[in-house]
């Protein structure tokens, strides 16, 4: 029995040594093998491809730990100075802002990033940078709703949409960020009223993901669904012909075009405060912003590229240009907690 404990122990020590060896090498710079440790919330095949490309190009190994941003942030907080994380990638700006305010990121000075990332899509002090954009848009039943009836997010709270709106749970970060943007633009009072109005108008209690909302519109449970643009792109290009047909039945609308523009969010990256491989981390992010990488993001995952030199996927181009809300995304993080509280108070499940 003791032998068994010993074996298990030594196996795990081996594992830990493997990690630490690498870390030592990276720090002393004398290593033949360079690496960068990436904590990421993104888990797409296309990302794997990109990481492989980066390895090929630079010879720097990419180690991935995949988990939700919240969990990664908790993990980094607890690991503190010893955290092996070099880069944190999340799928929304709010979480990056949280990581920054929890003192988990460091400012990066990089001319490349400065030049290629528009200022509202990155942190004012260069703690994090957007990689890809997603717009929060409205999918509507073409047969029941005229495009002219649609206008703004605020309008979703008006009585005419009673029992017509489909939107997912308030625990979803995209909804939280949308709410945060409304808090910034309209004030807390109005935001709360808005949330209560939307809850009043919901066709059913929130459940499922964004795709489920679209399916529910087509099934006739409601008329409008608030969804992320890239899910629509994915549905339209799904392997499942049913999904494609479903997605083709809805019209897409970009709200607030006459005002501040459609709410967008980014998937973004920042360099960890205690990054053992800081140089590699910067190289890594710079690579993700490069035209080559941005093309991969844009074409395989139906996200809008941050790098303005890269054009969107043909699918997205079909939907046309749109005016985006240029609110600095740091604001979303700052107001995230308030958004959750207001949601709860409004009874948004």
């Amino acid at each position: 029995m003791k032998k068994l404990i010993l074996t298990v122990f030594s196996i795990s020590v081996l594992f830990s040594c493997k990690n630490s060896d690498k870390k030592d090498e990276a720090e002393t710079g004398a290593s033949t093998e360079q690496e960068v440790n990436v904590y990421t919330h993104r888990h797409y095949e296309s990302d794997q491809e990109l990481f492989k490309k980066f390895e090929e190009k630079t010879g720097i190994n990419v180690n991935i730990i995949n988990a939700s941003a919240d969990e990664l942030i908790q993990k980094m907080t607890m690991e503190g100075e010893q955290s092996p994380a070099d880069v944190l990638i999340t799928v929304d700006a709010g979480r990056l802002e949280r990581a920054k305010s929890n003192d988990l990121l460091q400012a990066v000075s990089s001319d490349i990033l400065e030049e290629k990332v528009p200022s509202h899509l990155k942190d004012a002090n260069d703690y994090w940078f957007g990689l890809t954009k997603r717009a929060r848009i409205i999918a509507y039943a073409k047969d029941r709703v005229e495009e002219s009836e649609l206008s703004t997010y605020e309008d979703l709270a008006s009585d005419k949409w009673k029992d017509k709106i489909l939107i997912r749970s308030s625990s979803n970060i995209y909804n939280q960020s949308l709410m945060a943007s409304i808090i910034v633009h309209d004030g807390e009072e109005e935001a709360k009223k808005w949330a209560a109005g939307v809850v009043e108008n919901m066709a059913r209690s929130p459940k499922g993901g964004d795709r489920d909302q679209i399916k529910a519109v087509v099934a006739g449970e409601g008329d409008l669904a608030v969804v992320n643009s890239y899910y629509v792109g994915k549905m339209l290009n799904s392997n499942d012909t049913e999904e494609v047909e479903t997605a083709e039945k809805v019209g897409l609308f970009f709200p607030n075009q006459d005002g501040r523009g459609t709410h967008i969010n980014v998937s973004g990256a920042g360099v960890a405060k205690y990054a053992p491989n800081k140089e590699n981390a910067i190289k890594f992010i710079e690579f993700l912003i490069s035209e080559d990488a941005q093309k991969v993001f844009a074409h395989s995952n139906y996200e809008y590229p941050v790098n303005e030199k890269v054009s969107s996927a043909p699918q997205l181009q079909e939907w046309g240009e749109f005016k985006e809300d240029t609110l600095n995304l740091s604001k979303l993080g700052e107001n995230n907690k308030k958004a959750v509280i207001l949601f709860d108070e409004a009874g948004w499940k």
Partner: peptide, 15 residues
């Protein structure tokens, strides 16, 4: 000696 985490981020913590 500079070492990494002995337990965290290894199988030990997970198991």
């Amino acid at each position: 000696i500079e070492t990494g985490f002995l337990i965290n981020g290894t199988l030990v913590a997970l198991v």
